[in-house]
């Protein structure tokens, strides 16, 4: 997400978050510092802090309070990426060597745990107990989602419901609580906190479905990995689920395993793309986006609402 998308009046606050992230991950231990700085410099869309700050704009906005939530949420996301790379044995993340690949799994585990600890240190500067109940529930759900993802690998008989529940935990939940916690920290009224949660949830669902579509339609350069890699690794996403409604394609897709060659994968991806599955997936993504936008209509008309709408539209159209 480009910062140019955002109101210029928030630019200073986003710069502050970026500086605070650098402070948060700093360690006197050189190797740890090298690893976490590398991760930070690799960038990322920072969508969680964006949602925290924009949601807080609907209440009593104090950047010195809200920044703690924004930093904590981004750090939790970063820690989960580091540990995910260990799980997936990944070599690259955003085109940069992963910590597990550059050092080893042990260092990646220590770095991930360190980042999570720093996240909780920031988060506990927020004193409302409900904020911690919301976030801790989300962390546990995300974890369960990851377990389900491993259990569901190469399970070709899974349903649309399995997929939607999985992406809710994997992505949508943390975006939803980013919105909700921004609102909690800014003492937005409870009804609107719930609405912001729903907005984040719908956006998160749409975002992940788009991500899953891009795995089939994106270029290796943009994705930082070969197209169809998720499917080759056994992650059955929405386009594959729709494609499998065709019995012939289901038989073909069900043969995929870790050893499936690039040539075979390219052929399968081409057939999925021509099956109409991509269009059907886009329709579902758009449906979630529409729900998110309709929630925005209920919010007071201000610059934060306008920016949230721009972000929602950006997510719907993004190509990488």
């Amino acid at each position: 997400m480009k910062l140019s998308l955002l109101n210029s009046n928030l630019k200073g606050d986003f710069d502050l978050i970026e500086q605070e992230l650098e402070i948060a991950i700093h360690s006197k231990t050189k190797m740890l510092n090298d690893a976490t700085v590398q991760l930070l410099k690799a960038g990322g869309k920072r969508i969680r802090p964006v949602f925290v700050l924009l949601s807080a704009k609907f209440g009593t906005y104090d950047i010195h309070t809200v920044k703690n939530v924004a930093v904590a949420l981004e750090l939790i996301h970063m820690a989960s990426l580091v540990h995910d790379d260990v799980i997936d044995d990944a070599k690259l993340r955003r085109g940069i060597t992963t910590i597990n690949y550059q050092w080893n799994d042990k260092i990646a585990m220590y770095a991930g745990d360190y980042i999570l600890a720093r996240s909780l240190e920031y988060m506990t500067k927020i004193k409302q107990p409900i904020a911690h109940q919301i976030l801790s529930n989300a962390i546990i759900e995300v974890c369960i989602g990851e377990v389900e993802q491993i259990k569901d690998k190469y399970r070709f008989d899974q349903t649309l419901r399995d997929y939607l529940r999985r992406i809710k935990r994997k992505t949508a939940l943390l975006i939803a609580v980013s919105c909700e916690l921004g609102a909690v920290a800014a003492e937005v009224d409870v009804q609107m906190q719930r609405q912001l949660y729903k907005f984040g949830y719908f956006i998160g669902m749409s975002y992940q479905i788009t991500d899953d579509i891009l795995d089939f339609t994106g270029s290796e350069k943009d994705l930082g990995k070969p197209a169809g890699e998720d499917l080759r690794q056994g992650n059955i996403t929405l386009p594959a689920l729709y494609a499998m409604k065709n019995p012939k394609l289901k038989t073909l897709i069900s043969t995929i395993n870790e050893d499936t060659s690039k040539k075979q994968m390219d052929s399968i991806i081409a057939q999925i793309k021509s099956s109409g599955a991509i269009e059907q997936s886009h329709a579902i993504s758009s449906r979630y986006l529409k729900k998110a936008l309709s929630i925005l209509d209920e919010f007071p008309a201000n610059r934060a609402r306008k920016t949230l709408r721009e972000i929602a539209n950006f997510i719907g159209k993004r190509k990488y």
């Binding site: 540990h83 909780l120 107990p129 911690h132 801790s136 974890c143 491993i150």
Partner: peptide, 19 residues
């Protein structure tokens, strides 16, 4: 893989309990 997730789950659960 499960050792990664179990450790994360126990961390989340400590936070959850105290929250």
């Amino acid at each position: 893989q499960l050792a990664v997730l179990a450790g994360d789950y126990y961390s989340g659960m400590y936070y959850h309990l105290l929250a």
